[in-house]
Amino acid sequence: MRYLAPGSLKEALDILRREDDARCIAGGATLVAMMNADLVAVDVLVGLGRIAELSGITETDDEVRIGAMTRHAEIAASPVLTGALGVVRSAAGQIAHPAVRNMGTIGGSICHADPAADFPAALLAADATIEAASAEGTRQIPIGEFFEDYFETALREGEIVTAIRLPRGPAGARGHHVKFSRVDGDYATVSVSAVLVMAGATCSYARIALGSSGPVPIRVTAAEEALVGSPLDQAAIAEAARLLAEAADPVDDVRGTTEYRLMLIPRLLARALNTLKDGETASV
């Protein structure tokens, strides 16, 4: 195996074009663990850590842009991720433990596309766009098209995720991510990401995504419609949860049976919505 550490995106893309079996490594937290477990063998590793242009959070009036190599800890502490984007910030703060949050990156996380990870659902709720570059140029992938299956994304050979672009969301929106895990820092048994706008006591906007509930994060428009126009009372939340659970296809494993996960969906949805309804801003 060879390790290459390009200093620029262009250099990295050239390597990917040149080398047949090259694999990018971001924070390494997952890939090195898989290499240690003898699950993955790599010929050429391309370390992205030296590419300054891939790191950091910047903002414009319309959007916040998170560089793909930005670490979870920085996202969890970002003062820029407010309002609707609190959903991404609160997800980041709940990933694993401090030491892992100092290693893992948002780009690495979404490229691995682990259905039990926290970012996929949070980014779906935040309506993110994934920016990917290749030697041919840059393209924008809507988050709803990015995740394709367990550990599979729309990323093509030779492409690198460069940034996650987050629209500000509607005025007055707030976002929050809740997860249930067996112990602190474990992967989610089920997670719910929610972005809401309340007009007085009535919900005027809702965007909800389920994590750990199928091969890809799940969003159900009808469930959101069941919430909009309601005071987020028990009946509305139960109906939204029913529609979401209907679309869910969770695995049966050591973190919980399929039935157990389905039972978690209404409870976590209620927890997320009540937190947002009560006007608490997303806390980490």
Binding site: A5, N36, A73, P98
Partner: peptide, 22 residues
């Protein structure tokens, strides 16, 4: 396996030595 990288804790068992160069 925790060590500090630039003052922050990381897991040395899932860090490549090469990625710690800087």
């Amino acid at each position: 396996c925790s060590v500090l990288r630039d003052g922050k804790p990381v897991r040395a068992c899932i860090s490549l030595a090469f990625a710690a160069e800087d």
